[in-house]
């Protein structure tokens, strides 16, 4: 990835806006915000050449907290907004972000097709296995026996969704897991993701202290994956299928060329198009 211009003098906090987050203190998303700003500072990105698009949910509030261009779209549609932006403005660094409900439930179809389309962007899903903004309902990544939601008494009884496996099967070009409990490690993964061409998916564990207080233990459960990133989808498939959801790091780096239709700079006059209609 090449940037037209960079800002080497900026520090992580220079990428933050003056808007104070509404997240609960202790929420993992603060650390994700921090990791993103650290990654941007490391890459010396010019804030005006970066755009972050999100959907709806706690984590989707992120764009307002950054000093880059942002779009807080409707529920589940961050990826198509980001796709339209990147395809028509390939000069920008584009990120999309949101939660597990936004990305895997209402936005599930877009997730699959964004992986498949492989536009050069980075998608960060902050997974806390719960809908926070609507007061704690089960999401696609919630365990079947989690019974704390009034909406699903006794648990969902439905197996959770495995986002990394689906990302690989759908064609994502980069698959990694990071955790808000290790923001500096997450920053490294994010730099790696943003630098890798094509669609990069970062599964970001980000505990919900309010509705899933037990997730505070994630800090003790996460650990660096004892493997190097593979470029072989078959190896990656086995790795991701046997993964316990707590291995951190870059797990797969594909080599598919990103999807970017050519934007011609020498263009025809509109009257040339009209010739097709003249009898």
């Amino acid at each position: 990835m090449e940037m037209a211009n960079t800002c080497p003098s900026l520090k992580a906090k220079d990428y933050k806006s003056g808007t104070k987050p509404v997240w609960c203190p202790g929420c993992g998303d603060y650390s994700v915000l921090l990791a993103i700003t650290k990654a941007m500072a490391e890459m010396s990105l010019s804030p005006e050449n970066v755009a972050l698009v999100s959907g709806i949910g706690c984590s989707s509030r992120l764009p307002a907290y950054l000093n880059v261009y942002g779009f807080h779209a409707v529920h589940g549609r961050a990826l198509p907004v980001a796709t339209g932006l990147k395809v028509s403005r390939p000069d920008l660094t584009v990120l999309a972000a949101g939660g597990d409900g936004d990305g895997f439930s209402i936005g599930g179809n877009h997730f699959m097709h964004a992986c498949r389309r492989n536009v050069d962007m980075t998608y960060i899903v902050m997974d806390n296995q719960v809908y926070g903004m609507t007061k704690g309902q089960a999401s696609p990544t919630t365990d079947p026996d989690w019974d704390k939601s009034k909406l699903t008494p006794g648990g969902t009884k439905i197996n959770p969704y495995y986002p990394l496996v689906i990302a690989l099967a759908s064609g994502a070009n980069f698959i990694a897991r990071a955790s808000s409990t290790d923001p500096n490690g997450a920053a490294k993964v994010l730099v790696d993701a943003m630098q890798h061409p094509g669609f990069s998916f970062v599964h970001m564990l980000s505990p919900c202290v309010t509705f899933r207080p037990e997730q505070k233990d994630w800090k003790k459960m996460v650990r660096a994956a004892p493997v190097e990133p593979t470029t072989d989808p078959a190896v990656a498939a086995k790795r991701l299928m046997t993964d316990d959801n707590f291995f951190l790091g870059t797990l797969y780096k594909g080599n598919r060329a990103p999807y970017q239709p050519e934007l011609k700079t020498s263009v025809e006059h509109i009257s040339e198009l009209e010739k097709g209609f003249i009898l």
């Binding site: 261009y69 779209a73 980001a82």
Partner: peptide, 18 residues
Amino acid sequence: AEDELASINQLIGGSFGG
């Protein structure tokens, strides 16, 4: 696009980009 939900939102992204 993959569906009309995507197409309208892609437009919003494209237009946001100018």
